Amino acid sequence: MIKTRFTEMFGVDHPIVQGGMQWVGRAELVAAVANAGALGMITALTQPTPDDLRKEIARCRELTDKPFGVNLTILPAIKPPPYAEYRQAIIESGIKIVETAGNKPQEHVDEFKKHGIKVLHKCTSVRHALSAERMGADAISIDGFECAGHPGEDDTPGLILIPAAADKVKIPMIASGGFGDARGLVAALALGAEGINMGTRFMCTKESPIHQLVKERIVANDERETELIFRTMRNTSRVAKNAISTKVVQMEKEGAKFEDVRELVAGARGKMVYASGDADEGIWSAGQVQGLIHDIPSCAELVSRIVHEAEAIIRERLEAMMSSAKRQAAE
C-alpha cells in the first residue's frame, strides 16, 4: 500500500482523489470512490440550492462510512451563487474535507479552518499554489495544461508544473490533469507530488451518474479529442471536441464575444449531454487523458488496479533497474 503525507493527513487508504466535477460529482460516484479507499468530492454547485447540498451530503453518508469531501468552486459571475450559504451548509453538515477552486478563496479558507475542516485548494500555477499555502490551505491540487475544465492561461504541462511546484510548496500536493492509470501515479510521485487527482477517468466508471453513451464516447476518443474554448476571452476551458466546441472555436477566431456564444455554451445544454447521451447537445468537459481510457470499470476495480499496478511498477520495474545498475557497477 502506498502511503504519503496526503493519505495520512486526509485519512484515506490510497493517494487518489476524485475532484469536483459539475453535474458529475454526485453521491453515488463519491461514495463509490470513498468505499474504494480514495477521496471523493461532492460538487456543491451541482446542487441547485444549499439545502439540496445538505440532502446530497446526507445521501452520500447513507452509501459510505468512509471520508469524503465537498468541492466549492468560486468563479466570477454577474449574479454569483450564494457561496456563503453553500459554505454554511458544508459546515453544518459536518464535512471535514473541502476542495476549493477558482478565485481567491481566503474568506472560505478562514471560515472552514475555524471549524476544523481541512482545505485542499486546486490551482494552475506555482504562484497561486504558494498564495493558497499562505492563506492556510492544508494541501494543494496542482492542475496541468492537460486537464479538463480550466487549465489557466500559462499553458504549463504537468511534467514541468508538478516538479516546479514541488520545489517551492511545503504542504502536501496532489498532481492533477492527465492522470488515469498507474503509470501516472508513479510519475506524479517521482515528480514530487503525493498523490493524483482524476476527473475524466472517474467520469468513465460504472457508478458515474452520466449516460452510458457519453462513457463509451470517452473510451472511443483519443488524446486529440479536446478543444480549448474561451481562449480569446482569457478564460480558457478544455472540453470534449464536438460540433458545438468546434463552432465556438471558429466563432472566436472570427472575433465573437461571450454574448455571441452564450447560448451554445449554456450549462443547461452541457447537463443535457450527460442526461441524454447526445455528445453534441452541448459543451462538456473532458481531458486529454481520454487517450488512456479504454474501459468502464467500477470505482473499486479502477482504484485497486491503479494501486496494485503502481506498486508493481515501483517494485518490479524501477527497483529491477536499480538492481541491474548496481550489478553492472560491481562488475
Rank of each mutant, 00 (worst) to 15 (best):
G199A: 10
S245C: 12
Q106N: 09
E319L: 14
T205Y: 03
I57L: 11
D51A: 13
N103D: 13
V12Q: 00
G270W: 08
M272G: 02
R217G: 00
R54M: 13
I160Q: 11
E259C: 10
I42V: 14
V33N: 01
G178E: 11
E319N: 04
P157Y: 14
I196T: 06
A77M: 13
M41N: 10
R201A: 09
I142L: 14
P50Y: 07
L72Q: 04
A325N: 01
I244R: 05
T64L: 08
T246Y: 07
F230W: 09
A164T: 04
V303Y: 05
E111F: 00
E301S: 08
M203E: 13
L185D: 10
P163W: 10
N71K: 01
R238Y: 03
I283E: 05
S304K: 03
N235A: 15
V248L: 11
E111K: 00
S237V: 14
L45I: 14
L318N: 02
L63E: 06
C204W: 03
R26M: 14
A312Q: 12
A164P: 10
L120R: 00
V98D: 09
V261W: 08
K271E: 15
P76G: 11
I57T: 06
E316G: 08
L189A: 03
G102H: 12
G149L: 03
N103T: 07
Q88D: 14
P105I: 04
T156P: 01
K104N: 15
F145I: 03
A310C: 06
A325K: 04
P157T: 15
V289F: 00
E301I: 05
L185N: 05
I293E: 00
L189D: 03
E153G: 02
L159S: 13
A137Y: 11
A243D: 15
M1S: 13
Q328C: 08
N221M: 05
G102L: 06
L161C: 13
D167A: 15
R262S: 11
V289G: 06
